[in-house]
Write a protein that binds this DNA or RNA. Structure first.
Lengths: 212, 212
DNA sequence: ACCTGAACACCGTTCAAGT
DNA sequence: ACCTGAACACCGTTCAAGT
């Protein structure tokens, strides 16, 4: 027992913000957002807890790394000759797809402070996308503000109330709760069209010289 | 030291969901949402941690009690002869006032699952308010879905990015970040009018026989 | 520069016990 | 029925130390 200590030491370069982020994402989607802890991620990577601190400043930074992972997984390439309405629809459905793919991590992105490192550049890209589709920068900022608030609010609430295996089990078969329909994904598209119609009216109203 | 043990025992009736909720709200607004713990609330009430479990099932229930406190503090009485547009404006500004008054607790309400006990009855009240203002129940549910998602998303993000004393200190005086304006309270009203305009168009469009 | 374990001050919750 | 302390299995992070 004294000889050749078997404690495997992790090779030097095998840890990075990237690999930690991927592991963190796996932990959340498997075990839930509350399970995103330094210790669980270290265990997922089979490394000591303190090894993470060579790449992260603190637990908040760990959440930031996950936000980066999510942004990386959201592809929204510019598309030539697209109306701003269609660009908006594409943004909204890309966002919803991301929420569906990573339901338990999604709120980290949706509610992330603008100060989180990877968020601001992504927002800039979205503004540019709307400007490329013909909006003024002023209008693009207004549109993005409403779109982001609507989509973030809707999707975070939808994802939090997402039926679990347990809740489906215990639900009465004919539970006709009128509120249950409120945040289901059908109404996401309805709300999207409401927001787009409202923006159309605002932008056209301004162009034809009306006040406000 | 042996005589008359001084350990003050709390009188029997002095703890309740109500008083625990009020203490929890104080803790959050003073120390932040991360400080909402069983132990801190017990300390705020000068009682043993385990005393809380006579009134709460678990930590999740503690957050539920805070949600109840917030709903109690949101007064939104029905108002005779009000258009649904004005009722919507009143709902949106009441919600914003609540976020301003309880910035660190607000997200517990805004993102609460519909399963949290006090949330559903409150939603029912809001539906009734819109129906009283002339909408069909179908339209009221659509309106509330969009309004709630927009307001919750906007206000939670705004409140999370709310400038702290520290961040104001370190901000450059002429930092003209175009994204900074995105989630400030001026744009809240802009977005509110966009949503209302979109709903108007949808409801009027349907009334005049157009499809969708 | 990167990885590690021990130690400390927290946390929720179970259990057994007081009144 | 309501209140309590000790104990247990967690948590983030500091520190001192290995390579």
């Amino acid at each position: 027992m004294i000889a050749s200590q078997e404690t495997q030491r992790r090779p030097r370069g095998s840890l990075s913000r990237q690999s930690i982020g991927a592991a963190a994402l796996r932990v959340i989607e498997r075990d839930g957002l509350d399970s995103l802890t330094m210790r669980r991620v270290a265990s997922e990577l089979s490394c000591g807890v303190m090894s993470l601190y060579s790449h992260l400043t603190d637990a908040d930074d760990l959440r930031g790394v996950v936000v980066g992972q999510l942004i990386d997984r959201m592809d929204l390439r510019p598309c030539e000759g697209e109306s701003w309405q269609d660009a908006t629809r594409r943004m909204l459905s890309t966002y919803a797809d991301l929420a569906a793919s990573f339901p338990r991590s999604f709120e980290l992105l949706a509610l992330a402070g603008a100060d989180q490192r990877p968020v601001a550049p992504n927002m800039e890209r979205l503004v540019d996308l709307l400007v490329a589709a013909g909006l003024t920068e002023e209008d693009a900022l207004i549109a993005l503000s409403v779109i982001d608030a609507y989509a973030s609010g809707f999707l975070v609430i939808a994802v939090r109330n997402r039926p679990t295996a347990a809740s489906v089990e215990r639900a009465a078969p004919h539970q006709h709760d009128r509120l249950a329909r409120l945040h289901h994904l059908d109404s996401y598209d309805v709300g999207a069209e409401v927001v787009i119609a409202g923006l159309e009216q605002r932008f056209e109203g301004r162009r034809s010289g009306r006040k406000q």
